[in-house]
Amino acid sequence: MEIKLLNLQTKQVIAKEVKVAYRFWSRFKGLMLTKNMPDNLALHISPCPSIHTFFMRYPIDVLYLNNRKEIVGTEESLVPGKIGKRFSKTESVIELPAGRIKDTSTTVGQTVAFIETRK
């Protein structure tokens, strides 16, 4: 099974492959020490109210989601070594390749869905 990330308002696929970090160690590690992030990949971290980019080598885009998968905040091209913003009601975070938010016209107030597909 693969999981893709879909913007429910625009019907656009934001990421063709979503990796999940739902356990302590996978949330703790996140994207630290990885060399790059493929264009169609996303990392969903839950529960997670905020993130940092310490020990990362590249910038990322970030979607902050509430419990209904509505986007309550975004950050574009968050560079390595920074602490992400905090947005009220954030329950999970999606990390994306830098530029993906702009490329997909994703904005605060939109809702995303995780769609399971068979390979």
Rank of each mutant, 00 (worst) to 15 (best):
E91G: 07
L78R: 00
K102Q: 13
I71Y: 01
K11W: 11
G73L: 08
V62M: 09
Q12H: 12
V18N: 05
V108G: 00
L41G: 02
N66Q: 09
V79C: 03
L5R: 01
L63E: 01
L41Y: 12
K16R: 15
I51A: 03
G84S: 01
E76F: 09
V93I: 15
V62Y: 08
I71E: 00
I51L: 11
L6T: 10
T117Y: 11
N7W: 11
V79I: 11
A42K: 02
K119C: 13
G99F: 08
M56H: 05
V13A: 11
P97L: 12
E95V: 12
G73D: 09
R57M: 08
H44M: 08
H44Y: 12
T53V: 06
L33E: 09
P38Y: 08
T74M: 13
K119H: 14
C48K: 04
V13D: 09
P38E: 12
K19Q: 04
T74S: 10
G73N: 06
I14Y: 01
S88G: 08
I60P: 00
E17M: 14
F114G: 01
V112A: 07
D103I: 10
T104A: 08
M37L: 15
F24V: 08
S50P: 00
T53N: 02
T74D: 05
C48A: 13
L65N: 05
A15P: 00
I115S: 02
G81S: 14
E75S: 03
P47Q: 08
V112G: 03
A15I: 11
L33P: 01
T90S: 02
N66H: 08
K119F: 14
K89R: 14
A113G: 14
G81A: 13
N66K: 08
S105A: 15
Y58Q: 05
I94D: 01
P97S: 13
K102I: 14
G109S: 05
E91C: 09
L63Q: 02
G30N: 05
V72T: 12
I94S: 00
R118Y: 14
M1E: 05
L5K: 02
K4N: 10
I115G: 02
G30D: 08
I115T: 11
G81K: 13
I101H: 02
